[in-house]
Simulated scan of single mutants.
Amino acid sequence: MKSLSTRTLRTRLGAGLVAGATCLSLAACTSNDPEQASDSGGGTSEAEAGSNDEAGDEVVIGFSAPAADHGWMAAITNAARAEADKYEDVELRVADGTNDVNLQISQVETFINEGVDAIVLLPFDGAAMTRTALKAMEAGIPVINVDREFNDPNAARATVLGDNYGMGVSAGSYVCEQADGNENAVVAEIAGIDSLPLTQDRSQGFEDALSECGLDVDNRVAADFTVEGGERAASNLLQAAPEIDYLWNHDDDQGVGVMAAIQNAGRDEFVMVGGAGSANAMREIQSGDSVLKATVVYPSTQGADGIKLARLVVQDKALGDLVEVSVPRTIQLYAPVVTEENVDEFLPSAFES
């Protein structure tokens, strides 16, 4: 695929910045410790009269997400629980996490039959869950779609998304900044699962951003978002590439394995950039003693934002910082770069790999 023009790239970047600004009123500082997160303030117990956080009619929300088989996904559900705990007018019913599409369909149908007020759904497979989400919407139950989109926009009242293309752009822009005009720099990439659109978007954003400073990806391998897969892919890459200046790894969970492979190989000549924004990656950055110098955030607050949006939709409220009187159809979160300079700002809301 050809790289985008400078004008197109800047347009996409601008759109991402606007989307990031839009969701500032949503984003809650969340933690993998629900008790800690619930003590962070806000919610109905401290709300001013007339504010969006003031207690209203009870809202029963059904929540379903894939199995918490790695840190980011576990943080999604934990953050959703913590956000619901802040509101005395929210009853959250959480289905067991599952990677079985048929079971997730059954879970959502149970919520429909129970007559919940809203459903927050991070689908294991967006396309496969579309028909069931449409069924909920047709029953008058608003669906908040999180992270993985349905293939019919009518299947959700609102959608909360990370920015996979923007992650790639942020990572590539950071590499360009570090390379500082050196067009001979050797750049490597460890992707996630290549068949997934999210991986393709991340790689395309990375490629497009690198092209702005005359760089391209010299060595690329794909992993599978697991520690074992990351170590295996990184080992293969390091054997194939005797010289690397910059390495971007798409996912900090698989990055645990990537870091193990780097240490086993005794390689330290390059700058590494992570992806997703895990707490252990941020601590590596904070130490200053690692090849890992930055990570690009893919917010694990999306489930929490979904809970907050569901409550606002059911109570017929809008976002407090917008003039618009209804909740927007789509909110896309920003993908900032975390470095040693700003890591203290992001570490409290990071997830554990």
Rank of each mutant, 00 (worst) to 15 (best):
T130V: 02
T44P: 01
T8M: 15
Q104Y: 09
V146L: 04
Q302P: 06
S51D: 07
A95H: 03
D180E: 13
L9R: 13
T226R: 09
V338C: 11
V101I: 09
P66G: 06
A179W: 00
E284V: 03
V221Y: 15
T6C: 08
G288D: 02
S195V: 10
A68P: 11
Q254S: 11
I190F: 13
G274E: 09
N154E: 04
N219H: 13
A318Y: 04
N184K: 09
N249G: 13
G126P: 03
D180T: 08
E341S: 14
E284N: 07
L238D: 15
T44Y: 12
A222T: 08
E352T: 13
E54N: 10
A156K: 08
E228H: 14
A156T: 02
G168T: 00
A260C: 07
L238F: 15
E243F: 02
S25E: 15
D33V: 00
Y165I: 00
V337P: 06
Q104L: 07
I119L: 03
G266F: 00
A156M: 06
Y165H: 06
A335W: 07
G62W: 00
A118W: 02
A79L: 05
V146M: 08
Q204V: 04
S40M: 07
A223S: 15
G303M: 05
Q204A: 14
G306K: 01
W248T: 01
L9P: 12
P242H: 09
A158H: 08
I76C: 04
I244R: 07
N151W: 05
I193K: 15
A223V: 08
A133C: 01
I190K: 14
N342K: 00
A75N: 06
A304Y: 08
V116W: 03
N280M: 10
I105F: 02
A155M: 06
A139N: 02
L196K: 13
V227C: 11
L13G: 12
A128Y: 06
G42C: 13
R267H: 13
R10I: 00
M137Q: 07
V101H: 02
L17D: 12
S235C: 07
F346K: 13
I119E: 00
E91Y: 05
A68W: 08
Y174T: 03
M282C: 09
A67L: 13
L347H: 15
G168E: 00
F225W: 13
A79I: 00
R220H: 15
R220V: 13
L347R: 15
F225V: 10
V258I: 14
M167D: 05
T30H: 12
V296N: 11
A260K: 14
N264I: 01
T44F: 09
V338Q: 09
Q254K: 00
E177V: 01
M167I: 02
S211D: 08
G303T: 00
S38L: 04
A82C: 10
H70W: 14
Q315S: 03
L17A: 14
